[in-house]
C-alpha cells in the first residue's frame, strides 16, 4: 500500500515537472522583446512582448487550428491581423479587443467572400 501511494505521488511529481518544463517562455525574451510562449493547452504565441504582455507583431497558434497573425495590444488581438480558421476560412482586416472590428474581409474555404465593416465579430449589413 505504501509503495502504491509513493508511486502515485512520484508519478504526479514527475508529470507536473514535465508539464512545467514544456510550458512558459520557451525562446527569447517574453518580458520585453521577442519571444515564444507555450501555454498548457499547447497554444503558442511567438512575437513581440512589452512589460510581459503580447504587444506588437506576433502569431498566436491554437492547438485546434486557429492561427492569428498580426498586431497585438495589451495581449489582445488589436490592429491589423489575419485569422486562419481550422477549415481554411480566413478573416483579414481590423481587430479590436480580440474581435473583428472595423474593415475586413471574411473568406470562406470555398472562396466565397464578405467584405465590409465588422462589429464585434458580426458583419454590418
Amino acid at each position: 500500500m505504501k509503495k502504491l501511494i509513493f508511486f502515485i505521488l512520484f508519478s504526479s511529481l514527475i508529470t507536473s515537472l514535465a508539464l512545467a518544463r514544456s510550458t512558459g517562455c520557451k525562446q527569447g525574451n517574453c518580458d520585453n522583446g521577442y519571444g515564444k510562449w507555450v501555454y498548457t493547452d499547447k497554444t503558442t504565441y511567438e512575437g513581440e512582448w512589452v512589460a510581459t504582455k503580447k504587444h506588437g507583431q506576433g502569431t498566436e497558434t491554437w492547438p485546434n487550428g486557429y492561427i492569428y497573425k498580426g498586431e497585438f495590444k495589451e495581449s489582445q488581438w488589436n490592429g491589423i491581423g489575419i485569422l486562419f480558421f481550422p477549415d481554411g476560412s480566413t478573416y483579414e482586416g481590423e481587430w479590436a479587443n480580440g474581435f473583428m472590428n472595423g474593415e475586413g474581409t471574411f473568406t470562406w474555404s470555398d472562396g466565397k467572400q464578405k467584405k465590409g465593416i465588422w462589429k464585434n465579430g458580426s458583419f454590418q449589413e
Partner: peptide
C-alpha cells in the same frame, strides 16, 4: 467540447 473550440465559436457570437 474543450475551451478552445468554444472560444473559436465565440468569435462569431459576441
Amino acid at each position: 467540447i474543450p475551451q478552445r473550440a468554444i472560444m473559436g465559436a465565440n468569435f462569431l457570437n459576441f
